[in-house]
Amino acid sequence: MTLATDSLIVDGVRLAYRDRGRGEPVIFIHGTPSHSYEWRDVVPHVEAAGFRTVTYDLLGYGRSERPVDRDTSVAGQTDLLEHFLDALGIEQVTIIAHDIGGAIGLRFSLSRPDRVRRLMLIDTVSYDSWPSSSWQKIIDENLDDCTSMPQDAFNALLTRQLKMTVTDHTLMDGDVLQAYLAPHQSTLGRVSFFEHQVRHYDSKFTREISDELPRLTMPVRILWGEEDQWQPVRYAKRLSDAIPNARLAVVPEAGHFLMEDAPERVVHEVLDLLRTPPR
């Protein structure tokens, strides 16, 4: 199931997105190495519960444009998020965010708290938690010569990383694995992956907002896979302690891609948050 089926020009660039349903708006922000496909088993249930659901591929990801001259870091994506909401006519929104999407959600919630009704952080990067050791090794060994990497070698590298995101490795196989690999099955796709994603794996974007987290006043839910190999659960507890209105739920036998390991639990937690009165 592909979620980003439509396109919209936002601040001069093309974003692939999906906007469905009626009612209070909820936006889902994916992580890396990923695209909006990761929400396929979550969004339809939230939409069926009576909410307007918006999913999109971050700039440089999935089916969105892969520009040569735009900032696709967490900071750049945060700026673009505001333009995207404006283009959709959404003034206030609940943000459901995963991985680097969580950093985008945090930065946006701090800069425009008037526009965020609630915030959910799922296995998000924070503080100095990223890049993980396995990604740092890839950055050190492959970033400078990524243009010469053969497709088979790239697929093997990314497959190894994706297998680390789930506790049940059979979930990251077959059609699901191919869907995560699909945006990178060309020279452009491989180079874009390193330039638009991996090159921006930099904890400065979360370290520089760490002291501001206590300013968040909206309801915040933190949801984490207990077996996350990239973002250890101690960071979830650190976020929970720093954010005044945060509630933490740790899911056993689940990894970094919680929506793959435990989609029903994610749906339950999202709907529970949406029943919480904003502020």
Rank of each mutant, 00 (worst) to 15 (best):
R115G: 11
E226N: 15
D57T: 03
K163C: 14
Y127F: 12
M259T: 04
D71W: 11
A75Y: 07
D99M: 02
V191W: 10
V74C: 15
A87E: 04
I29G: 09
S64I: 00
V198L: 15
Y61P: 05
V46L: 03
R238M: 15
P232E: 11
R40L: 14
D41I: 12
N142S: 10
P278Y: 09
Q151F: 04
K137P: 13
D152L: 12
R190L: 00
V74G: 09
D69F: 02
L216C: 05
V26L: 15
D272C: 12
S203N: 15
F84Y: 03
S203A: 12
D99F: 01
E253F: 14
V68P: 13
G23Y: 03
E141K: 14
R207A: 15
P214Q: 02
H200K: 12
P183H: 05
P219S: 05
I96M: 01
H184S: 05
S129I: 10
T2H: 15
S134W: 14
E208H: 09
V68M: 15
K204T: 14
S111M: 13
Y61W: 13
L3M: 08
G60N: 06
P150M: 13
S210F: 07
V116H: 02
L8H: 01
R199I: 04
S34Y: 07
D144A: 09
E65D: 06
G102E: 10
R66K: 10
S36W: 05
F28Q: 01
